[in-house]
């Protein structure tokens, strides 16, 4: 088992390296820098001495291979560079943003699981019924709705009209602030979970071992609990894991809409002022989150499902 875990960890390294290369090259090959964009915005940056000084300070004069080497060797020491905007180390810009993003991803997933799994389950137990059709309509709608529009509607109804919840912002340990963004972000994984659960349950219900169990007189509630649920659980947990992994990337628009101080809103803000080191750092965090969660899902999968060969 340890060997499997180790191999799975090592497998991530080439992908991470490639991602680092891609985000490095996107931002170094293309002309136009933070400094020129500052001038384009009409700020008082036309002084050539100041420009040269800043170029030297951020190492922008060095040839690309040198900059790549500096960047990668910095990464190995958890040094992501210096923010152009705040002149702070990127790690200390990113640090405080991480927990709000993780909170939002977990809350959205909780909502998605609490609604999506029961919906899919009940729909599959009555295939072809009105409830089943309604669930599937909900699912395809949930996958088609722009989440930031849903967020706006939720804001309008629950914050502006009813006044039940705050319309935006973040407060530590405040569930009230978390509710609306989590629902808006959770609708699409909810829809996916409903679909996956339904498909999984339908598959298992037609399996031989369920027919056998039924034939030998297992009661319906026990059949659902012990035979179907257990087998669908692996599929559902995998889907949930993979979804949590991609939620941090999906959350950028929602974070921006609700002024949520996470990685996503930091990314958007840094993109608009071309604070490239922070953009690179934020993308890297989002990708790492995805890869690490995927790895954990794979490992958990091997632990739960004895059919998966670990050797």
């Amino acid at each position: 088992m340890m060997g499997f875990v180790l191999r799975r960890v090592l497998q991530m390294i080439p992908t991470i390296l490639a991602v680092v290369l891609i985000i490095f090259f996107i931002f170094s090959v293309v002309p136009g820098s933070f400094l020129t964009s500052l001038m384009a915005e009409g700020r008082n940056m036309t002084n050539a001495d100041v420009l040269a000084q800043m170029n030297a300070q951020f190492g922008l004069d060095d040839p690309i291979p040198v900059r790549l080497w500096n960047y990668v060797s910095g990464l190995l020491q958890f040094d992501l560079g210096i923010s152009y905007r705040t002149r702070e180390p990127v790690t200390s810009v990113l640090g405080p943003r991480l927990w709000p993003s993780v909170q939002l991803a977990i809350a959205a997933m909780t909502f998605a699981a609490a609604v999506g799994i029961p919906l899919g389950f009940m729909a599959a137990l009555r295939p072809g019924s009105l409830f089943d059709s309604l669930t599937m309509v909900t699912a395809v709608s949930g996958l088609s709705v722009p989440e930031f529009w849903l967020g706006l509607l939720l804001m309008y109804v629950f914050a502006l009209q009813l006044g039940w919840l705050p319309s935006f912002g973040y407060q530590e340990n405040s569930l009230r602030h978390l509710v609306l963004p989590a629902i808006a972000l959770g609708v699409s994984p909810m829809a996916l979970l409903a679909r996956t659960t339904r498909a999984g349950v339908l598959d298992v219900m037609n399996a031989d071992f369920v027919r056998t169990a039924r034939a030998k007189g297992v009661s319906e509630p026990r059949l659902v609990r012990a035979h179907i649920t257990r087998n669908v659980l692996v599929l559902v947990l995998t889907t949930m894991g993979l979804q949590i992994g991609s939620l941090m990337g999906q959350a950028i628009v929602i974070e921006k809409l609700f002024s949520w101080p996470g990685i996503g809103s930091l990314l958007v803000d840094s993109v608009s002022v071309r604070d490239i080191p922070v953009v690179q750092g934020a993308v890297l965090v989002i990708v790492l989150w995805f890869l690490v969660i995927n790895m954990l899902v794979d490992i958990a999968y091997a632990l739960i499902d004895p059919r998966i060969k670990v050797a």
């Binding site: 080439p14 992908t15 991602v19 996107i26 293309v30 990337g249 953009v279 993308v283 890869l291």
Partner: peptide
């Protein structure tokens, strides 16, 4: 295959955002 795996690891909206940051 390797390239596809890398592309799958970077959420497409995030990637598009990064490219837009460069291209304007």
């Amino acid at each position: 295959n390797g390239l596809t795996n890398v592309m799958l690891a970077i959420p497409s909206l995030v990637f598009a955002l990064a490219i837009m940051a460069v291209l304007g």
